[in-house]
Design a protein around this nucleic acid. Structure first.
Lengths: 180, 180
DNA sequence: CGTTGCACTGCAACTCGTTGCATAGGACCC
DNA sequence: GGGTCCTATGCAACGAGTTGCAGTGCAACG
């Protein structure tokens, strides 16, 4: 699971409380991700026990105390480790977190991970296109069940196309950044 | 959850055992979906208790007996109901199942559901594009953290674009089918 | 002045899904 | 002959995530 790592990235960008993190996840990171406050509170507790984050209880006027979390050395090390670790089962959300976290680790290692996923998705796309060619050579005349199955396949193809194009855009930008 | 309904669609296309369904989910429906045999066995049991499917124990030579499941009248009614029911929280997988199941219900109702989701995603896409314009007016010069945040946003935009295009393709095909 | 809403944390119970293990007979390989 | 794989079902335990509830105290609405 990568909620921990998503929190590490978010806290690396800016320290914050559980409540604040919940708000953030509804927006920026939450383009892909969603998490309830419950989930975040529990994961934060676990992360504190593991020594990845440090807590600072801040009294506030008028409102309840809040626990502001900061990434510790252990957390930074874990984030660097995770960013470089290949994970074939990672989905777009995990990769988005890795990209967003690249600043806090080795951008080259993140790029390498993207390359791996790019080829996996390109292969899949190829399989889908072959199925399309083989099973639906004349899509214009399709009806009923066959049409509906074709449309679902088209969805799969579009998703994979989008992924591959995105990975290419990311890789081009990361290479360009390295050169600059 | 829609695993039940995915199974109803799959069993409507063809009767089968839990084991067989597991295999199917690894392929066709599993373009988007994945489910372990455990999950499927348990859901099938629940569906049987609810009267959505009927079981037929088939003895086989050499291999264990298998339980072949068939959709019952109750199951067909439930599928029709679910296909027509609006579900704002449905993701691409759920919609793919609805599209694939349109044959067994009212394709017009499914199209209406797609229209709803199309406009939701189009709105989101608009929001993302405005964020892009506002926060990243000159993407070519971006570096570090800002670049990485931009790339994630680009991923979100591509995903939404892909969704909207897919919905449009589906709607065009369903309309064309209705006229034919 | 009462209600609604927001900020902030947390417990308890639940659902959904995965993993490990068990069983059992046959096929296939070396 | 022994190992492993495939078909076929299922239990038990676990992990991840959601939902419901609960409490506090200020601010703003009408």
């Amino acid at each position: 699971m990568a909620l921990e790592h998503a929190i590490l990235v978010s806290l690396s960008e800016r320290a914050g409380s559980g409540y604040e993190l919940t708000r953030r996840f509804e927006k920026s990171i939450g383009l892909f991700w969603s998490a309830t406050h419950q989930q975040i509170y529990r994961v934060l507790k676990r992360m504190e026990e593991a020594g990845w984050v440090a807590v600072d209880v801040v009294a506030q006027s008028g409102r309840p105390d809040k626990k502001v979390y900061t990434v510790s050395d252990g957390g930074r090390a874990e984030l660097v480790r995770w960013l470089a670790e290949p994970d074939p089962s990672a989905g777009p959300m995990e990769l988005a977190v890795k990209i967003r976290g690249a600043t806090f680790g080795d951008p080259g290692a993140v790029a390498a991970e993207i390359v791996r996923h790019r080829s996996a998705h390109a292969e899949r796309l190829d399989v889908y296109r072959q199925i399309e060619k083989r099973d639906f050579p004349a899509p214009a005349g399709l009806q009923g069940q066959h049409l509906h199955q074709y449309l679902v396949l088209r969805g799969g193809i579009r998703v994979e196309e989008g992924q591959v194009e995105w990975f290419d855009e990311v890789l081009a930008a990361l290479h360009h950044e390295k050169d600059a």
